[in-house]
Amino acid sequence: MEEMFEIAERAVGDQTSVLTVRGEIDVSTAPELRDRLLTVAQDGRAIVVVDLSAVTFLDSTALGVLVSGLKRLRADGGDLRLVVTGRSVAKVLEITGLVDVFSIFETVDAAVAG
């Protein structure tokens, strides 16, 4: 019924972590993303790049998790950056106004570089 949901994590230097998410982020999978975001933040990563290039579906619960992660990281002087290439994900960010809240990049390299 659904594509396999998975999150891969890669550290870049001491400060940055890249989370590559695949599949659909909805109310049943969003908790896993939230837990990973909490873990990388607790590991002392100030910059977290969430690569949504391979995300095929994203709803308001996913956005809630990303916004919470963003607030937490920015409160500690860090940032949560998004990599968005798909039209459907871009549209959700657009219509909710969150496109103006997140730093959004077209590639992981650009997001890591900031």
């Binding site: 109310v27 049943s28 969003a30 908790p31 939230r34 709803d59 308001s60 619960t61 956005l63 809630g64 998790v65 919470s68 959700v92 219509i95 909710t96 106004g97």
Partner: peptide
């Protein structure tokens, strides 16, 4: 249901309404 009592997923009715 998500096994996360006390650290639940926030269902944002505001975001839902906007969507």
């Amino acid at each position: 249901q998500n096994g996360q009592a006390g650290a639940d997923i926030v269902l944002s009715s505001d975001l839902s309404a906007r969507i």
